[in-house]
Lab assay of single mutants.
Amino acid sequence: KKSYVLIKVKNPKTKETHTIVVPEENLEEVLKALASQPNVKVVDIERFP
């Protein structure tokens, strides 16, 4: 059974918020990819039960 993680990201320029759902096993690479985006800020990470 896969567990999923909900990542909320915000664009500081446009103030838009997006929610991305990723499998927990991919969380680290997704966070690394997001960290390299200049106008993306991770605001929240939630685990799915």
Rank of each mutant, 00 (worst) to 15 (best):
A33T: 07
V30D: 00
N39S: 06
N26H: 12
P23I: 08
T14E: 03
E25V: 05
K1P: 12
L31D: 00
K13A: 08
N39Q: 06
T17N: 04
E28T: 08
R47L: 08
T14H: 04
K10F: 15
R47Y: 13
A33H: 11
A33V: 10
V40L: 12
E29T: 09
T19V: 12
S3M: 14
E28R: 09
R47N: 05
K32G: 04
K13I: 15
T19K: 05
E29L: 13
L34G: 00
R47F: 13
K2P: 05
K32T: 06
V30R: 03
D44E: 12
E16A: 08
E16K: 14
L31I: 04
V40R: 05
T17D: 03
P38G: 10
V42D: 01
Q37Y: 12
I7T: 00
T17Y: 12
V5T: 03
E46V: 15
T17C: 11
K15I: 03
V21M: 13
V40Y: 10
L34N: 00
H18N: 05
E24I: 09
K15E: 10
T17A: 04
K2G: 12
E46T: 14
K41M: 14
S36T: 08
K15M: 13
E46C: 14
L31E: 01
K1N: 09
N11T: 04
D44Q: 13
H18Q: 06
K2F: 10
R47T: 06
L6R: 11
L31N: 00
K1R: 11
V40Q: 06
V5W: 15
D44A: 14
K2V: 10
I20A: 01
K41D: 09
R47S: 07
E46K: 13
E29A: 12
N26Y: 13
S36K: 12
K1C: 14
E28W: 14
V42P: 01
K13C: 10
L34H: 01
K15Y: 09
E24V: 08
V30E: 03
P23L: 14
P38N: 07
V22R: 01
K41I: 15
I7H: 00
N39K: 04
L27W: 03
P12F: 15
T17F: 12
T17R: 06
T14F: 04
V40M: 13
V22D: 00
K2L: 08
K41S: 08
V9L: 15
P49S: 09
V42S: 01
Y4I: 03
I7G: 00
T17Q: 08
A35D: 04
A33Y: 15
V21E: 04
E46R: 15
P23W: 14
